[in-house]
Each structure stands twice: as C-alpha cells, then as structure tokens.
Nucleic acid binder design. Structure first.
Length: 429
RNA sequence: GUGAGCGUAGCUCAGCUGGUAGAGCUCAGGAUUGUGACUCCUGCGGUCGAGGGUUCGAACCCCUUCGUUCACCCCA
C-alpha cells in the first residue's frame, strides 16, 4: 500500500457532521455584529514576517517559536498570520480607513501557530476578532465586553465563563511599574524558576502570570500594577467598571492578568472557563492605543478582542450542536428507468418552484427496498415515490416517514405533481 | 521544544502467561416481486501504524521511528 498522505499535524478537517455547528456559530456571530452595527473586514492569511515581529513583540513566544515563516520565491520572508490584530491594523493603515475616523470592524478565519497540539489548541485554529479604531473612552471597551457577554447569553454559556479584567496602564506608567517590579524580583531572585529568570530581562510582567506553585507566595507579595496606575488610566478603569456594573455584568479584577502580546495598554480582559482542560481562555482582548502609530499609521486609539471558535464550539453541549443539523424536507425515490428519467427533471422543477426546499435525490437506483432504506436514513420527513404506476396516472406517491399517531397525515397518498408544490412549500415554513 | 498514555476492519473497541485475527456499528444481499425504521440470516472488509530484533512461533516481549491524545510551556 502506498504511503497515505496525511494532513499537517494540528490542522484538522471539519467534517460534515461538524460543519452545521460551525455554520450555526458563524451565523450567530454575524447577527451579533449586525446588532452592534460593526462591519466585516477581510485580509490575507499571509503577511510579511516583519509585520508580526513589530506588532506582537520580538521576545514573545508567538514570534520566537510559533510562527509559520517561510521564504517567498522572490526571497521575501512571509508568515501565516498567528493572530488578526496586526494584519487588521496593517490593512486599515494601508487603505486609509483609520485616519480621522472611527471604525468598528470584525473578521473571522483561520490563524496559524506552530505549537504542540492539545485539547483546545491547534496549529490551524479559527478566531473571530473585533477591532475598534478612533475611540479612546472606556465606553467602547465596555461595549466590546457587553457584546461578548451577549454572545454567552445567546449560546446559553453564561454559567460556563467568567470575566476577568485588569488595567495595564499607559506605557509611561507601565515603565515606572516595570522598574519597581524588577527591583522586587531582583531582590527575590533566589525564588525565581528558570523561565522567570529569563523573563526578568525581557518581560518581567509575565512572571506575575506564572502558575509555578513555588512562586505563588512571592508573586502575591509583589507590588501591584493597579497601585501604580497613572490618573488617566485609573479614571479609565473606574469608569469601565461603572459601565459594567450598570448593565449587571459581573467581573473579577485580576491584577495579575497581563496578556501575552506586547501591544496592550490600559484595559485588558479575558473570559475564562474551567471546562476546557488546560485551555482556560475562550475570549480575550484589550486596548492597544500605541500599535497603529507603531506600525506607521497616524496616532489612533484602538481596542479589540479575539474569540477562539474551536474552544467556543467545544463549550457547547454535543446535543445542542447536533440539533442544528438540517435534514432534507423530502427525499425522491425513482423506480425503474422510465421513472429515473422523468423523476430527474421533476426534482429540478420542484427545486425551481420551491427555492427553499431541501430535496435529496436517491441516486444510484437499486431495489425499492434499498431506496427506502436510503430514504429513511436521510432523516427526511417525506418520501416522494415515482414508479411506473405513478407515471401512468401522472401522480407521485407521498409517504410520511416520520409520522406518529395523531399527526394530520399518517397514511401515504397519491398526489398530482402540481399538488407537491404547496406541500413542499408548507414544509419549508 | 519537554513528558506521559494510546495506535488491531470505514467507525467504536475486545484479544489472558507469546501458539495461525474477533465483536458491535456501517455497507451490500436475502427472509418480504413496489414500501424504510424493529428482528433474523448471509456476505464484503485486516501486510494488528511502519522498520528492525528476540523466539520453533510475535498483535502481544525489546529497540527505533511515525502518528495521535493529554499535560508542561504558551495562548484564542
């Protein structure tokens, strides 16, 4: 046997059994975006490598070891997008839609990170992202959080997720805090693990995020960013909390919430769950006021979040997902050569006459029994049977495959072909 | 990148201390000439992930390798 070519590790097929769930989620997300009047933007899945290095940060894990980077034929270094924000900002700047205006944008699609796959983490995964430009107030931060809370409500997941928020302050205030924290960590250097020692130089804030039990007490005692915020950030955060309180969204202030990407400032938030194994974050984001300028645009305030679709889908109950599978309204059986010829055209006519109807044609012939079995398996509500008898008197036999006692129609009946149209129309409503 | 568990039919899995490969589901046919679902019968389907070693003999033991799952790290 020849070697089978397999998919890339961590890049999964979405099979017919799962695609209805994806379509359902995607539809709900589109509706949600419409209800807040946000606009969709689409950008390529490949960008110049430098874009991600400059935006995400050179010393982050994503850039250091997780990017799919390769050389184009002309020697340019390209990278499969590991997240959406950088490319969204690039597209916004390049097309001049960020200058002196407000944009509320969303996008959905695959992202790529070369990590070891595990539950809720894949090399190709899907995100829905939202980015808002040109608004600097806490009201828009709150709007994004409300939007996500609304999604949990729509999907019945309110009990599964919890909101954590924090403020990272302005870059200036963070710089002050950073040196204070570094001093504290230096003083406790003997307690740091190997990872943290490495981060002491590159990104000391991330040490606060460590789950190492041996370091928890030292981290608890560390100076808190929240206590070193500048006035501007403090007001921003206080007002954000007030907005959330006013709509009854409960949250936990997690002063150790840092986020992995360099570009965040002020508000950061995460929706976390304990139902996804080791992957607790299903949605996360924050404000990134400096990024647009950093990538060459005019100084533009920005805030956004991203949602992991695989994680979202695995939070939903399997039963809930299966019910979104759409079975055909009708299944067409054709007995014998005459019927196959006539039925082929008839099925097309029915689709013309009732555009929303879903009709499965039992192709491939076979005995009556075989066709009935396939018809049953399709889960269709009614079977349309066409054979010599029906052709001779210009009718179609209609059999109600799912009828239970007490239903209007339980017995099969012979209808004229014209009578099928109102019947099928009724099924689509 | 590191660690652990698991790879047997299309799918879900049995297979004892090493002794010639099994079930259920699916699919096809039949019991029932044009009536499905429930039942019964029959059939199709495997280089036991791959390569090497030990042995008279390996799905089983050893080594290597690949895949996969979960976890660490990190993240959506």
């Amino acid at each position: 046997m020849a070697d089978k070519i397999q998919s890339i590790r961590g890049m999964n097929d979405i099979l017919p059994a799962d695609s209805p769930a994806w379509q359902f989620i995607e539809e709900k997300l589109r509706q949600l975006m419409q209800s807040y009047d946000y606009d969709e933007i689409r950008f390529p899945i490949v960008e110049k490598t430098a874009l991600f290095k400059r935006s995400i940060g050179e010393v982050t894990d994503i850039v250091e070891k997780e990017m799919y980077t390769f050389d184009d034929r002309n020697g340019d270094s390209l990278t499969l997008r590991p997240e959406g924000t950088a490319a969204c900002v690039r597209a916004g700047i390049q097309n001049g839609i960020l200058v002196n205006q407000q944009q509320r944008l969303w996008y959905m699609g695959p992202m790529f990170r070369h990590e070891r796959p595990q539950k809720g983490r894949y090399r190709q995964f899907h995100q829905m992202g939202v980015e808002v430009y040109g608004l600097d107030g806490p009201d828009i931060d709150a709007e994004l959080i409300c939007m996500t809370a609304r999604l949990w409500k729509i999907l019945g997941l309110l009990d599964s997720v919890k909101l954590q928020i924090n403020s990272l302050g302005t870059p200036a205030s963070r710089e002050v805090y950073r040196s204070i924290l570094s001093g504290y960590l230096q003083a406790n250097k003997s307690l740091l693990d190997e990872d943290s020692l490495r981060r002491l130089q590159s990104n000391p804030l991330r040490i606060l995020d460590s789950k190492n039990p041996a370091m928890q007490e030292m981290i608890e005692q560390a100076p808190r960013l929240m206590d070193h915020l500048d006035d501007e950030s403090n007001v921003h955060f206080t007002r954000l909390c007030a907005y959330l309180d006013s709509v009854g969204i409960t949250y936990e202030v997690n002063t150790r919430l840092v986020r992995g990407l360099d570009y965040y400032s002020k508000t950061v938030f995460e929706w976390v769950t304990d139902k996804l194994g080791a992957q607790g974050t299903v949605c996360a984001g924050g404000r990134y006021d400096g990024l647009v300028k950093q990538l060459g645009g005019r100084d533009t305030k920005a805030v956004g979040f991203a949602l992991g679709l695989e994680r979202l889908i695995s939070l939903l109950q399997q039963d809930d997902l299966e019910k979104h599978y759409k079975h055909p309204h009708a299944v067409m059986l054709m007995m014998g050569e005459r019927a196959q010829n006539a039925g082929f055209a008839l099925t097309e006519e029915l689709r013309n006459a009732v555009p929303d109807v879903r009709i499965l044609s039992v192709c491939g012939g076979g005995s009556f029994k075989t066709q009935m079995k396939r018809a049953d398996k399709s889960q269709a509500e009614i079977a349309l049977i066409l054979g010599d008898d029906e052709l001779d008197n210009n009718t179609v036999t209609v059999k109600y495959l799912r009828a239970e006692q007490g239903d209007d129609k339980t017995q099969q009946e012979q209808l004229s072909q014209q009578q099928l149209i109102p019947l099928l129309t009724e099924k689509t409503q």
